[in-house]
Design a protein around this nucleic acid. Sequence first.
DNA 1: ACCTGAACACCGTTCAAGT
DNA 2: ACCTGAACACCGTTCAAGT
Lengths: 230, 230
Amino acid sequence: MTAPTGVPADPQSPDAGPRRRAGRPAAAVLGQDGITTAALQLIGRSGYDGFTMAALARTLNVAPSALYNHVSSKRDVLVLVQDHLTSFVDVAGFETGPWEQAVRDWAWSYRDVFSKHTPLIPVIAVLPVTDAPKTLAMYEAVSAGFGRAGFPQERIIPAIVALESFIFGSAYDVTAPADIFDSGSMAAATPHFTSAVRRLAENVDEKPADVAFSLGLEALLAGLGALRSA
Amino acid sequence: MTAPTGVPADPQSPDAGPRRRAGRPAAAVLGQDGITTAALQLIGRSGYDGFTMAALARTLNVAPSALYNHVSSKRDVLVLVQDHLTSFVDVAGFETGPWEQAVRDWAWSYRDVFSKHTPLIPVIAVLPVTDAPKTLAMYEAVSAGFGRAGFPQERIIPAIVALESFIFGSAYDVTAPADIFDSGSMAAATPHFTSAVRRLAENVDEKPADVAFSLGLEALLAGLGALRSA
DNA sequence: ACCTGAACACCGTTCAAGT
DNA sequence: ACCTGAACACCGTTCAAGT
């Protein structure tokens, strides 16, 4: 029974100081799993502003340069975190349920996971799937579901990409401030916009981001669903 | 006839050295318009990686600290650039044409403008409209068009937000590498995904990002259009 | 192979001094 | 009010030295 590598034995101890002398330790102190876990904890505690290689190294009780034996850049760490988070996205419906509900569950959970991690979105959006095995597994589950639902092969990837684009954009929208549409002193000059915003604000039950996401998702479901043949 | 402030008289001169001594100059050297223009030029030439306050100051032939007399942060500069770019988004159709075509023109031009400026998307997505007058003007034009097209008042903002979320996500997709969906050594383990990707790759006429954007946009147009009453 | 510690080449931003 | 120049408090990353 040994602790997994990368998880410090005593993360609390203040002013721990140098824990070990230079030179290769008997057992490796770090590993990609431990780095990923520590990064996720650090981001949860300090946000992405506080997520620096120095801070990450401190929680792991190593020198910052030690991280570079296991990752080649800070971006690499973000890729590890991104792939780990993707395993929390719900794809269960694609095996068991009808297509519409499967997409709904997938899309809402996908948005909710990454709305707390929007700095990862630029990373995910351009990341080759080869570099992210759990993300690739998600695409396999979703693709299989679209195939079973009767989508023509050549439309499956475009349909998934369209949904994902909507999901990523919507994840940002969750983080928008409540007064984002307050036209302030320009209200008189923008009557149509200002009155539409007022009408939206009258709805106090639902969060504006959820109303927009639901509206867009249901429209996409209806429009994309029409492509099915089976 | 004097040059607008913020535009250096001789931007080419190499090793210009200190151009003026300390102390307030007779006429202001900088201004928000000149800073915005210079920032846009710099981003075009060096990309967002090369866009630093020091580099911006150098193109304007001032010390970096001089910028802070006109903007309060680098983020402020990005807001100025974002608002300027928004004036290139096509909203003309909302005054003259049918709703579907107006949204199409708007959405494609909006995506195209920001696909070259994806680092601005996190800024736009959470920026209060009060801070961006041209962006506010765009929303007014779009809101008016949705109202004339027969949308119920309380659905106008959610519909616009849903479309914008899709547009922002799609702007990232434009920048994705061509081999983003190459499953590599995992191809055998992901048969559904891999075969769907192969089918997509057979289409060499259209860019994958354009296929996905068109598919999603048309689905949204069909789904959202059903909300209209007039 | 995998750690430490020092160093490098930057960042954005602040502020006293000058006119 | 609006500039310069020096300084501050950081960054991510590299690399020789050590075991």
